[in-house]
Design a protein around this nucleic acid. Structure first.
Length: 666
DNA sequence: AGTCGAGTTCTTTTT
DNA sequence: GAACTCGACT
């Protein structure tokens, strides 16, 4: 494909024979007339293909890359999509506006955020920062709130707020609907919510939801900005439309008020309702966009008929009247039925998989062809240990994430504070590295520094050196204080004058390096991580871009030990496997209380669990193994597990029970 | 009052 | 393993 890159893109799109490269269903959608279009694409039907060819088609009709807005859910999906467009058309990915809703929100708000209260220079709180921000605020405003054990903790309270915002409902209404167990608390939660919103603006920090909520607010309340983007993005394409929530659907509708929107989705794969996703957005799309053309793509090129029979059957058990009816039509030849594998416990499950992998390898499968899917991270523990023991390479897209490791977060906090001195959360994290400084002391010092800075009209990083502040630093921390503050001053200076990469290097080699050496025994490994951050920063010319990326990319996994191109087994949650496909798929832990999760059953979210199971089985191309242990040992007493109801619901002609031969050691 | 260490409990999914 | 609780120490 290299020759494409050399070509100028304007008018230089390579000739694509759309008719020949697409099936009839796909072709219709790809060549749709400008106007609202809803594409219902079943699993494995070539959804991504349709979307990428649509982009190519628009380009071939003379639409400029900059006029296309491509919205996705995850960073991974955005990358993959733009990469494929680039391969297809030779137009470099960076010429499109594409990415997650959050990315686009940030990008627009940092330029046009003023009318809704965000000056350029605001910083983003990740999930756990936002939680501690909220927790501190609650302790201050309503000190007894957390004393009552029946009240939500900071984390859950954050979820309650988030749900209201993502569904665009008043808090009262949202609580009644989604968190009825806390309905009597609404009166106390409302003022906390208000303070939460106010205080973020005051500190010029945004949580994830702000990036969406204020974007919509901006588009609705500032006609000039709205018009600017509406005219600019003549075509709006949305991937995984079934996972949009009310807020996101509102953004799409407002930016795309010209109705040239193509929404692609599959209501059977809606698995983010805990984030307010509402697949009814699909159902109501034609109402909101009159004259919408609806395209159904149902031919499945991915899986064997046996796998699809099983998948179709999973949906049969769905609560009726949810979404569009669909049935995947198989294109491929028959092969083997999915296997149902009963094991004694997780350990035996792991051993079975390893044994089977060896068999598959001798049949010519590569480790890259095989994926292990599970409902929750911790279910992969035993398998990870066994794989490590036998030194079978695996890549795990879950667990401790790169940007969530303590040392990475510490460093990012320093950068964030240097860039935005109002960011109290970042300051707290930074100074808490010193002895005898916790959240309370940090807040006092921060207040004092801001006040001093205001009075003397000096930057906050200067005020931190003043005797006034120094006097309030606990004795135990006083020794280290000046050198940490000096480091912050250097970083802040570099934020203004230097490149992000220089700034990061300064931070990595500053005070923190000494701290790191003393604090961790694996100092070298951690230092390596931080050095790689310098490289990461080299991709940006703007500090805020880089900081935003650091926070928004936090799902990026810590696979530094594994070369991404190396041959390795893939371990991933079902959520993260969405949109991917593998020749061989093992779904593990298919037992009641694990998958479906007990909590989901208790909270009546069975349909979503079922869709999640549907997503799992439709990832497989050739062979599917459904594994369940009969004994669960998490902590303490072993408890016996029943096979998942999703397995019990399957008529037995749809699968092949597989006996495993136990190796007797004694 | 606030920090810190020891001991205990419970694990969802992502931006 | 991390997050939370509780009690001791400054």
């Amino acid at each position: 494909m290299d020759f494409n890159l050399a070509k100028p893109s304007a008018g230089g799109i390579p000739e694509i024979d759309f008719r020949a490269e697409l099936n009839e269903e796909q072709y219709q959608a790809v060549t749709a007339e400008p106007g609202p279009a809803l594409v219902l694409a079943g699993a494995g039907s070539g959804k991504t293909r349709t979307l990428t060819y649509r982009v190519a088609y628009l380009l071939s009709k003379g639409v400029a890359p900059g006029e296309i807005l491509l919205l996705t859910f995850t960073n991974k999906a955005a990358r993959e999509m733009l990469h494929r467009v680039e391969d297809l058309t030779g137009v470099p990915a960076r010429r499109f506006w594409g990415g997650t809703f959050h990315h686009v929100g940030h990008r627009i708000l940092r330029v046009h955020g003023e009318p809704v209260g965000f000056k350029s220079g605001f910083t983003i709180l990740d999930q756990s920062d936002a939680e501690s921000f909220l927790g501190d605020l609650v302790k201050e405003k309503d000190p007894t709130f957390f004393k009552d054990k029946t009240h939500p903790r900071a984390r859950q309270l954050g979820e309650v707020f988030s749900m209201a915002r993502n569904t665009c409902l008043p808090l009262e209404e949202s609580v009644r609907r989604f968190h009825p167990q806390h309905e009597k608390l609404t009166g106390r939660m409302v003022p906390l919510f208000e303070t939460y919103m106010e205080r973020k603006l005051k500190q010029q920090v945004a949580d994830y939801d702000d990036l969406l909520e204020y974007l919509l607010k901006l588009l609705r309340e500032d006609p000039e900005t709205a018009r600017h983007y509406q005219e600019r993005f003549r075509h709006v394409l949305v991937d995984e439309y079934q996972d949009t929530n009310t807020l996101q659907a509102g953004i799409v509708d407002t930016i795309g008020n010209h109705h040239r929107i193509m929404a692609v989705g599959d209501d059977a794969q809606c698995i983010y309702s805990w984030r307010g996703a509402n697949y009814e957005n699909i159902v109501t799309f034609p109402d909101r966009h009159p004259g919408a053309a609806v395209y159904k793509i149902e031919t499945n090129y991915r899986s064997t008929p046996e796998i699809l029979n099983l998948a179709n059957r999973v949906l049969v058990d769905q609560t009726p009247a949810s979404g569009f009816h669909k049935e995947l039509r198989a294109f491929r030849e028959n092969r083997t039925r999915p296997y149902m594998v009963q094991t004694m416990d997780n350990r035996e499950q792991a051993q079975f998989i390893i044994k089977r992998i060896e068999g598959l390898a001798s049949e010519g499968y590569n480790l890259n062809d095989i994926a292990i899917l599970y409902r929750a991270h911790y279910q992969a523990m035993e398998l990870q240990m066994e794989l490590a023991r036998l030194s079978i390479p695996f890549q795990i897209t879950s667990g401790v994430r790169f940007f969530e490791q303590a040392h990475v977060r510490d460093l990012v906090a320093q950068l964030r504070f240097a860039y935005n001195p109002n960011d109290l959360t970042a300051f707290q994290r930074t100074v808490a590295l010193l002895p005898k400084i916790g959240p309370k002391t940090a807040t006092r010092l921060h207040d004092l520094a801001l006040q001093t800075a205001r009075e003397r009209k000096v930057p906050v990083v200067e005020a931190l050196h003043s005797p006034t502040v120094l006097a309030k630093v606990p004795k135990a921390a006083a020794d280290e204080w000046p050198s940490l503050m000096q480091s912050l001053r250097d970083i802040a200076e570099s934020c203004r004058d230097g490149t992000p990469s220089e700034t990061v290097r300064l931070a990595v080699e500053g005070w923190y390096e000494d701290y790191l050496r003393g604090a961790y025994s694996n100092f070298h490994a951690r230092q390596e991580d931080l050095r790689s951050l310098t490289g990461f920063a080299g991709r940006f010319d703007d500090m805020q871009d880089m900081l935003a990326q650091l926070v928004l990319l936090n799902s990026e996994t810590s696979d530094r030990s594994v070369d991404p191109d190396a041959e390795a087994l893939r371990l991933t949650t079902v959520h993260q496997a969405k949109g991917l496909e593998f020749p061989i798929v093992f779904v593990i832990g298919l037992a009641e209380n694990l998958f479906p999760l007990r909590r989901a059953v208790e909270e009546n979210n069975l349909d979503e669990e079922r869709r999640l199971f549907y997503v799992s089985v439709t990832r497989a191309r050739d062979e599917l193994y459904l594994c369940f242990p009969t004994i669960g040992r998490s902590n303490g007493p072993a408890l016996s597990l029943k096979p998942s109801r999703f397995l019990q619901d399957l008529p037995n002609h749809l699968y092949e029970p597989l006996r495993i031969q136990r190796e007797r050691i004694w």
